[in-house]
């Protein structure tokens, strides 16, 4: 986001940001509607993270952070409770911390960054849950499943985003680079 304000492509940025934010909220909602739910707490597809990933790779980390936090606040107030917002924020912030760092280090491809983000998201939420319940055992019980689900969902979303990115370079005026 740094520098966008004094550049000519600010309107483009705002338009893309708005579209991706709307897409992220919608994707999160669609996910809630999927009738087949895995009967384990905390396992979800993380479709909305796809929009955050797109933002991270199309533009930069600060815009991805803004998108993620706005999405959590907006869909939280629209569809769920304050408590859910806190859990989501914990997962979202931890996930973006990891993804921002790993993208900068350039040691992983997009699927790897996405995977690490999904795992970090699950661990972040689990840590908050363990704090709330004041129980480390519950954390250990859920950890293996949440690790595996993070790998699988992160991989799926990451591959989708990697395939989408080259087709979406018009969104950031061709400035996309890996």
């Amino acid at each position: 986001m740094k520098g966008y304000a004094d550049r000519k492509d600010l309107p483009r940025f705002i338009a893309v940001f708005g579209c991706l934010l709307a897409a992220a909220i919608l994707l999160g909602y669609v996910e809630m509607l999927i009738p087949i739910q895995i009967p384990i707490q905390g396992v979800k597809l993380g479709l909305a993270n796809g929009a955050v990933l797109l933002m991270l790779y199309l533009f930069d980390a600060p815009s991805a952070w803004l998108l993620s936090i706005l999405r959590i606040l907006l869909s939280g107030f629209l569809f769920s409770s304050l408590m859910t917002i806190l859990y989501s924020l914990a997962g979202g912030i931890f996930s973006l911390l990891v993804m921002t760092l790993l993208k900068k280090l350039r040691i992983f491809g997009i699927p790897g960054v996405s995977m690490a983000g999904a795992i970090a998201h699950n661990i972040g939420q689990l840590a908050v849950a363990a704090l709330v319940l004041r129980s480390v055992e519950s954390l250990l019980f859920y950890l293996p499943v949440l690790l595996v689900s993070g790998v699988v969902t992160g991989l799926v979303i990451g591959v989708i985003v990697r395939e989408l990115l080259p087709k979406l370079t018009f969104l950031n005026n061709g400035g996309y680079q890996l």
Binding site: F108, P111, G112, M115, L140, L143, L147
Partner: peptide, 24 residues
């Protein structure tokens, strides 16, 4: 997909399996 991506997936899956096995 980069080689490191596969390594990350493998390591995490292995850790999860190990953890689950220990608990089991």
């Amino acid at each position: 997909m980069k080689k490191n991506d596969w390594i990350l997936a493998g390591v995490v899956l292995l850790a999860a399996a190990l953890l689950a096995w220990m608990q089991q």
